[in-house]
């Protein structure tokens, strides 16, 4: 009996490890393939798989012989600022939606969430016309603003849950202990929702960074972002797969680095209910 159960335990463990391994390969392979491609010279692109003569030619072409870095910087600027704006607006909004009772509270919350229901392509035409009219077309501000459609609902809904988890008693207790509301908010509440803040912030950044439709149609030469510009390497005469891969690799770097840095918070933040008293 005992050997039987330990055999099945072992089997369970083994199959779990196996499945995770399969999934890891499945998830990592495109990334690995992308990096490999970015290191291949054009003439070996289709004739080799893992054995080839590696070259930095593609990176050189993307970074030194084109203005890709400018668009990379554009993307960084727009995405970071979009997240900052979302934090400044979204944190108080999430708090209010979690704490206060007011008319149309649930409707407002739902409306904010509904920004994410429609595909971007559906609203792009009126937005395009409006942006042309009021001069926001092809500006940082315009992109940052429209990115709020992507980032704000996410941030508000994640953080609202975190604020709801904090007992109002804790706020009252801190106020009785001699702190003003602002001090309570900054010293007690923000640290308590930090895992959520970090996770939501990162997700917002990823969504903003990867955003394609909005910058494609609402920006031109000036504010265009790297996601859109990467397409240029698929251009007219030939398709430079190596250069596309190099551009994509560079583009993925900020997300990978950020995610690795805040991995610890990310897991806690996304598993919710992290605030327990």
């Amino acid at each position: 009996m005992k050997t039987g159960s330990s055999f099945f335990q072992l089997l369970g463990q083994g199959s779990k490890t196996f499945l995770l391994l399969v999934y890891a390969l499945f998830a990592l392979f495109p990334l690995v393939w992308m990096v490999i491609m970015s290191l291949k010279p054009d003439n070996q692109m289709f004739s080799t798989t893992f054995i080839f003569s590696p070259t930095l030619e593609n990176y050189d072409a993307v970074f030194l012989r084109s203005d890709y870095s400018r668009f990379f910087f554009n993307n960084l600027c727009v995405s970071v600022l979009a997240v900052v704006v979302s934090l400044v607006v979204g944190v108080p909004a999430a708090y209010a939606l979690a704490r206060f009772q007011f008319k149309l509270k649930e409707d407002i919350a739902f409306t904010i969430l509904s920004f994410r229901f429609a595909p971007e392509i559906l609203v792009i035409l009126p937005l395009f016309l409006i942006y042309q009219k009021i001069g926001l077309y092809d500006t940082y501000l315009g992109l940052i603003w429209v990115y709020q459609l992507i980032t704000l609902p996410l941030l508000i809904w994640i953080l609202r849950g975190f604020f709801e988890d904090i007992s109002p008693d804790i706020e009252a207790a801190a106020q009785l202990d001699g702190y003003s509301w602002w001090q309570v908010f900054l010293r007690l509440l923000l640290p308590l929702v930090r895992p959520g803040l970090v996770a939501a912030g990162l997700l917002c950044f990823i969504f903003a960074w990867n955003s394609f439709t909005f910058p494609l149609l609402l920006s031109a030469s000036n504010a265009q972002t790297s996601t859109v510009v990467a397409l240029r390497f698929l251009a007219s005469d030939t398709v430079h797969y190596g250069q596309v891969a190099a551009a994509a690799t560079i583009s993925a770097l900020p997300e990978v680095i950020l995610a690795l840095l805040i991995q610890k918070h990310l897991v806690r933040g996304l598993s919710f209910g992290a605030v327990k008293g």
């Binding site: 007992s167 008693d169 804790i170 009252a172 207790a173 801190a174 007690l188 308590l192 605030v275 327990k276 008293g277």
Partner: peptide
């Protein structure tokens, strides 16, 4: 407080 309201 009934919930103690300690700062977690």
């Amino acid at each position: 407080f009934e919930s103690y309201a300690l700062y977690p």
